[in-house]
Amino acid sequence: MNIDTQSVDQAVTAMAEVLADYLHPEEVRLLKSQWQRYSTVSVKMMQQCVLDATRRYPELQVYKSDIRKGFWATLQTDSQQTVESDSHNGYNSHNSHNKAIKVPVPVSELVLAFYTVIEALRSQLSETESRNLFLTMHQTVSQERTFKGHSLNISQFLEGNRPSVPDNEHLLNNLMQLAYVCLCDVTGPVEADEMMFRAAEKAKQNYPKTLVEKLF
């Protein structure tokens, strides 16, 4: 997700608000100051912010899952604002003048890289873990405003199929963030980090590194 410094400030402020339910104001302020060093909002940033908070304040360990979900929601909101901005400027693929004609669109390298990462994650999971991951993702996608207007049948990954996904960097980034959050709940954050790393490396074997990193 490529965004400006102001968006980072907004994300950091929103994440600090999540922690306000768990920490004293001064403790939140210290973490917020530490997070201001980041130049972009990304999955890696969120992972590090969770680690920063739980390492500095071990009592947060029991709330790690809730905090992670709260942080992800702030990233999702930021990305949604960007997507809506693109839509208002005429870049939405569902513009009225396009609705009458459905032309097959070649699958881009970015979408193929996304498929590769997700399939690499699936290959590292047991059948039960895989089912839990994709059904949770499917349910969340159907409810979240970020994905409204897009028909995303994530459960198709369970059948070894590749569901249709939008060729949109921001939405694919959001889907990857969601996959990470759900994966943390399924396997735990340490294993999730390792699985994500291996999946990303797998994709980088077939696609440019800079392209794959856009997903994260």
Results as ranks from 00 to 15, higher is better:
Tyr180His: 15
Gly188Cys: 07
Gln205Glu: 14
Gly149Tyr: 09
Met46His: 09
Val186Gly: 08
Ala14Met: 02
Asn161Gln: 05
Gln124Lys: 12
Tyr91Phe: 13
Pro163Leu: 09
Glu119Met: 06
Asn2Gln: 14
Val117Thr: 08
Leu152Ser: 15
Phe147Glu: 05
Val12Ile: 03
Gln10Ser: 01
Ser65Met: 02
Lys204Pro: 04
Phe71Asp: 03
Ser164Pro: 07
Tyr91Trp: 11
Gln156Glu: 14
Val190Phe: 10
Pro189Lys: 04
Glu109Ser: 11
Leu75Glu: 08
Arg198Gln: 13
Ala53His: 14
Asn173Gln: 08
Trp35Phe: 00
Asn92Ile: 10
Met15Tyr: 06
Arg198Asn: 14
Ser85Ala: 12
Leu158Val: 10
Lys64Gln: 12
Ser126Gly: 15
Asn173Tyr: 06
Val50Leu: 14
Ala200Asp: 13
Cys184Glu: 12
Glu201Asp: 15
Ser42Tyr: 10
Gly188Thr: 09
Tyr57His: 09
Ala192Thr: 12
Arg145Cys: 01
Cys49Lys: 03
Tyr91Glu: 11
Met1Ala: 09
Tyr22Lys: 00
Ile118Met: 13
Glu127Cys: 08
Val117Pro: 02
Arg29Pro: 01
Ser142Gly: 07
Leu75Ala: 07
Ala73Pro: 01
Gly70Asn: 11
Phe197Ser: 13
Thr116Val: 04
Glu17Ser: 01
Tyr115Glu: 11
Val141Arg: 06
Leu135Ala: 08
Gly160Ser: 02
Gln124Val: 00
Thr146His: 00
Phe197Cys: 12
Phe197Met: 14
Ser42Gln: 12
Ser123Pro: 02
Ser96Val: 11
Ser87Gly: 08
Thr13Cys: 03
Cys49Leu: 03
Asn2Lys: 06
Leu215Pro: 05
Tyr38Pro: 03
Glu27Met: 02
Ala192Gly: 10
Gly160Ile: 02
Gln139Arg: 12
Phe157Met: 13
Ser79Arg: 04
Val105Gly: 13
Tyr38Trp: 08
Val190Ile: 15
